[in-house]
Each structure stands twice: as structure tokens, then as C-alpha cells.
């Protein structure tokens, strides 16, 4: 966990008004209240990402919420898929897992082809 001063010195091109605006917009969600924000590693990485999207990829702040929203949906989906994989790993037999890993079944395709 780091504070806002350290974060701003760590990321080049980042200013405090930028960061505070992003927090107000809910694009960045640090712990703590205004004046005593604490940033975890994911928050730091997210600020870094927003800087890259804005400065290097020229996605301006009008378009940024759309990009962030889509990214958040994408990552939510990926976490669900990972969790699903973990659940299947616990819940189903090795045999079933092997069958899923080989989907679509080889034999069936061959039958259709002939």
C-alpha cells in the first residue's frame, strides 16, 4: 500500500489533479478517504494502464470510460472462466475432464466427414 504522493512520483506523466479526477470518476478505487488514499498494487497498475491508454495510445478522457468499462467486463469474464475451471477441476472426474479437453470429439468429426 502506498500513498498518493509516492504514486505520483512513481508514474511519469501523472499529475495529482488527473489522479483525483479519475478517482472521482470511479476509474480508480483506492482504499481510504480523500486526503488519505491508499493504493494497492492493482490500483497502481490500473493508474499506469490509464496513463498508457491516454498518453501512448491517445485515448482521450471522453473515450476512456468506454474502454475501461469493456476491459472490466472482459476481466470479469476471464475471472469467471478461471473460477469455472477451478470448480470443474474439483467437481468432475478425471475422465470427464479429459473428454472436455478433447472437445470436439475426434471420432464424431471423422464420421461426419465420411
Amino acid at each position: 500500500m502506498i500513498g498518493i504522493d509516492i504514486l505520483i512520483t512513481r508514474i511519469s506523466g501523472l499529475t495529482q489533479p488527473d489522479l483525483e479526477r479519475w478517482i472521482d470518476n470511479d476509474w480508480v478505487r483506492p482504499h481510504g478517504a480523500s486526503g488519505a488514499y491508499q493504493f494497492q498494487e492493482i490500483d497502481v497498475a490500473r493508474v499506469q494502464l490509464i496513463c498508457e491508454l491516454r498518453d501512448e495510445l491517445c485515448i482521450d478522457e471522453e473515450a476512456l470510460p468506454v474502454v475501461l468499462q469493456l476491459l472490466d467486463e472482459l476481466y470479469a469474464m476471464r475471472r469467471q472462466i478461471h473460477d469455472l475451471g477451478d470448480a470443474l477441476d474439483r467437481l468432475i472426474s478425471r475422465e470427464f475432464q479429459r473428454a472436455l479437453a478433447q472437445h470436439p470429439p475426434q471420432g464424431k468429426d471423422d464420421e461426419n466427414a465420411s
Binding site: A45, D72, A76, R79
Partner: peptide, 21 residues
């Protein structure tokens, strides 16, 4: 990168509003 965190449990903090998650 952001992905290293977003893929894990920490990423839930940035889940889209109203997601099943």
C-alpha cells in the same frame, strides 16, 4: 501489468457494476 492483478481475486474490486460477480 494490470492484467497480472485483474485476472486474480484483486480484480474483483473493478468488476463492472451489476455484474453477476
Amino acid at each position: 501489468s494490470y492484467r497480472d492483478y485483474a485476472d486474480g481475486h484483486a480484480g474483483r474490486r473493478y468488476a463492472p457494476a451489476g455484474a453477476a460477480e
